[in-house]
Amino acid sequence: MLNHQRSLDAISNNLTNINTAGYKKDEIRMNTFQEELILVSNRRKTSGKFVQTYVDTSKSNLEQSSFEFTESPFDIGIQGNVYFNIQGTNGNVYQTRCGQFELDGEGYLCLNDSGRVLGQNGEIYIGNDDFIVDNEGNILNENGEVIERLRLSYIPENADVTKVGNNLFSYDGNMTIPEGEKYDIIQGCFEKSNVDANKEITSLMETQRLFEASSAVLKYMDTINGRAASEIIKL
């Protein structure tokens, strides 16, 4: 029941963010019954109480998604396993596939309120909307001069990442782009979420049925236990 509840929460969150650019869907790692008992036992040792709560055991699916073409110079997509870097307002650097950028009040390229986009030399100053990004990540001004190059990080498709908000990630592994790794930077489009509405709705209905079935079994067991207790009292 706990695993089904986790799945329902993850599916609901996926459907909520189906239109969030760069969003990567969450998938639940199912625990075995033995693993659940270990979790309960450890909590009992540390808290002294037999109270079952559960931790988030979801994993972000980093599969490539499709693009939506807008022709806006501020929309930038990536084909491949590399990510943009964002200097968060808290000073931390995060990775993202959300390429719906804009200019802040000082003329720096930023991702809404999440922070500024990083280049090889730090935060990227653009100043206006007359710029070009080539397929390698070089940013050129109106005269065709390279003014900066996007700072890109490599994250394997099967990596375990920590999701920050809806479309930022934190990864502890080696993010150096491997030699020979192929990728393309595409200006004028952004990557959509990789949530498939039909699959998620089908999973939602199936998981809901399984949860209800598990709940019915549990109620039946409670009834049996209640009857057994009554018979013992009579004896």
Rank of each mutant, 00 (worst) to 15 (best):
R116V: 04
R151G: 13
I124A: 11
T202R: 07
N3F: 00
K199G: 01
N17E: 00
P178C: 12
Q100C: 01
E106T: 15
D184Y: 05
E179F: 08
E136I: 13
I201R: 04
N141K: 01
F131V: 12
Q5W: 09
N85D: 06
N158M: 03
N128Q: 12
I185A: 03
L111K: 09
Y183N: 08
E181F: 00
Q87L: 15
N158Y: 02
A216S: 01
M205D: 02
V164G: 02
Q79P: 00
Y154Q: 10
R151F: 08
V117Y: 14
Y171I: 11
K234Q: 14
S230Y: 09
L103N: 09
N135F: 09
L8Q: 04
D130S: 14
R6W: 10
K192F: 09
E36S: 13
F101T: 06
F211C: 02
F74V: 00
N121W: 10
G88Y: 13
G77S: 12
K59Y: 03
N166Y: 13
S60H: 11
E145G: 07
K182F: 14
R29T: 12
K199F: 03
T70W: 01
N166W: 10
M221V: 12
N158A: 03
Y108C: 05
D184H: 04
L2V: 09
G188C: 11
F84D: 03
E157Y: 08
F131I: 14
N128A: 11
F33M: 15
